[in-house]
Amino acid sequence: MAKARATVFAAELREEADPADQPTATGDCHDFGNSPYPGPSGGCSASFLMCLACPNARIHPAHHSRLAHLHRALDNLRTALEPGQWHGQWEDAHARLEYLKGQLGAAVWTRALANVTVADRELIALLLNGDLDP
Rank of each mutant, 00 (worst) to 15 (best):
L77E: 04
A10W: 01
G27H: 00
L81Q: 09
C29N: 02
R66C: 07
E82R: 12
A93N: 05
A93Y: 00
A17L: 11
K101V: 09
A25E: 02
A57V: 06
L70G: 05
A93C: 10
P38D: 00
L67R: 00
C54V: 13
A11N: 06
G39Q: 03
E12P: 11
G33T: 10
M1T: 15
S65W: 06
M1N: 10
A80R: 12
V8P: 03
F32N: 07
A119I: 12
I59V: 15
G43T: 12
W90K: 01
A106S: 10
V108D: 06
L77P: 04
D18E: 06
G84T: 10
P134I: 01
A114W: 04
I59Q: 01
G105Y: 07
L104A: 12
H63E: 01
E16Q: 11
S47I: 00
G39K: 02
E15M: 13
H71C: 14
H30G: 13
I124S: 07
R58I: 09
R14S: 14
H69T: 10
L97A: 02
A10M: 08
L70S: 07
D21P: 15
A2F: 10
D75K: 07
L13H: 03
S35P: 13
I59S: 05
G102D: 07
N56A: 11
F9T: 02
P38E: 00
Q22I: 15
R58Y: 11
Q89R: 15
I59R: 00
P134F: 05
D21S: 13
A119D: 13
H30T: 13
W86S: 01
L49C: 03
R78N: 03
A46L: 00
D28S: 15
T24C: 06
E16L: 13
H87W: 03
L104R: 04
H94P: 10
E16A: 14
T110S: 08
L67I: 13
A46S: 02
S65E: 00
H60V: 11
A73M: 07
S65K: 04
T24I: 09
A10G: 08
N76G: 15
L97F: 05
R121N: 04
N115C: 14
K3C: 08
L52M: 05
G33R: 10
G88D: 04
G88W: 05
A107W: 03
N76A: 15
A25G: 04
M1C: 13
F9R: 05
L13E: 03
V116M: 11
P55D: 02
G84E: 02
A80I: 12
V118D: 12
K101W: 09
P38C: 03
L127H: 08
N115W: 04
Y99F: 08
Q85C: 07
N56V: 14
R58S: 12
E122V: 15
A57F: 06
I59F: 02
S65D: 01
S41K: 08
E98V: 13
D92K: 12
T79W: 04
V8C: 10
E98P: 07
F32D: 04
L74A: 11
D28P: 10
E15I: 15
L49T: 01
A95K: 03
H87D: 08
P36Q: 04
T117W: 02
S41F: 14
F9E: 00
I124N: 00
E16V: 14
Q85D: 09
A62Q: 05
L13K: 01
H30K: 09
E16N: 12
L113M: 14
A57Q: 04
W86A: 06
L128V: 12
R72G: 11
A25N: 00
D92T: 15
A80C: 08
L49Q: 02
G105C: 06
